[in-house]
């Protein structure tokens, strides 16, 4: 087991180094300093800024230094777009708002989708299943952005209007986070995110359950006299954990991406919003630091996925 985990970690190190390499190269395809300064500034200004960031050194040196920054988690270059703040500080400010949206969204959407998927597979081929499948496909065919726009309109404007007082804020983020302010500012984005991912997820979980339902071991369990609920919640669910874990982990980057959209739209000062604003401002140090962190988070979830596999599947654990 420990050997297995170690192997997965070792395997992911070159992948992560590769990502850093690709990202750094991509960000240097044009001169980032000129892109930020614009043509009006002098060559001396340019060179000064370039030197300050070490962008005038050989690429290999920059790469090694940046990998060092990543390992020690010290992105202490000053942001160009927000002078006076380092990339590290911006990161620290942005993590909590991102997490309070992403984590509940992931949890809720997975739980609800798994349940709906189970229900759907239970009624396979009959009316409830058909209705759910059709709803899922219809839901999947509408753009995320439409959900957000209409969700905000009906969830915030219309609902507040009808009820007479504010249930959900139209946009923004609370100065101090309490369960109450969380509900006001974050519940609507979370709900929208859950609804959007549900179409894909229920279909997937249904397919997984239906597939597991046709396996031989199910017949064996029935032949033993196991009840339907025992079969569904004990035999099937434990086997289905492998695809479920994969799915949840695959949803993560989508949620990070999706939360970029939600953060932009609802004005939540999370990591995604910071990154997009940095790109608009040509804020090179922040872009570089944030992409490295995003990719790092993703790699960590990959490793976690593998570890979870091993926990549920003895064939992985004991091999």
């Amino acid at each position: 087991m420990w050997v297995y985990i170690l192997r997965r970690i070792l395997y992911n190190i070159p992948v992560y180094l590769g990502i850093l390499l690709l990202v750094m190269l991509a960000l240097r395809t044009k001169d980032p300093v000129w892109a930020f300064l614009g043509k009006r500034k002098s060559v001396a200004d340019h060179d000064a800024l370039e030197h300050k960031l070490g962008l005038d050194r050989a690429f290999a040196v920059q790469y090694v230094l940046f990998v060092g920054d990543v390992v020690t988690l010290s992105f202490d270059q000053e942001s160009w777009g927000q002078p006076g703040k380092t990339a590290n500080e911006l990161l620290g400010d942005a993590i909590v708002p991102s997490l309070v949206i992403t984590a509940p969204a992931l949890l809720l959407s997975s739980l609800i989708s798994i349940c709906v998927g189970l229900i759907s597979s239970f009624y396979r081929g009959r009316t409830p299943d058909r209705v759910l499948v059709i709803l899922a496909v219809l839901g999947m065919s509408i753009s995320f952005l439409v959900y957000i726009i209409l969700g905000q309109y009906f969830g915030a404007f219309i609902l507040n209007d009808k009820v007479g007082h504010r249930i959900f804020a139209v946009e923004g983020y609370p100065d101090s986070l309490t369960p109450f302010t969380w509900w006001t500012y974050c519940m609507l984005p979370v709900a929208i995110s859950v609804i959007v991912t549900m179409g894909y997820d229920t279909r997937f979980y249904r397919a997984v359950m239906v597939e597991e339902g046709t396996r031989d071991y199910i017949t064996t369990a029935r032949a033993k006299g196991a009840s339907k609920s025992k079969i569904m919640f004990v035999h099937m669910l434990k086997n289905a954990m492998i695809p479920i874990i994969t799915r949840v982990m695959i949803t993560l980057p989508f949620l990070i991406g999706g939360s970029i959209l939600l953060e932009m739209y609802f004005g939540i000062p999370g990591m995604g919003r910071r990154l997009i604003l940095a790109i608009r401002d040509n804020d090179f140090p922040v872009i570089q630091a944030f992409t490295a962190v995003f990719a790092g988070l993703y790699i960590i979830t990959n490793i976690l996925t593998d570890v979870l596999y091993a926990l549920v599947d003895p064939r992985v654990r004991l091999s």
Partner: peptide, 24 residues
Amino acid sequence: MRKIRGDRIAMIFQEPMTSLNPVF
């Protein structure tokens, strides 16, 4: 019927490789 299955009438299957639940 569940009380009869496995208790009074039991069954074994063709595919021993897949008939046992792999995760238990």
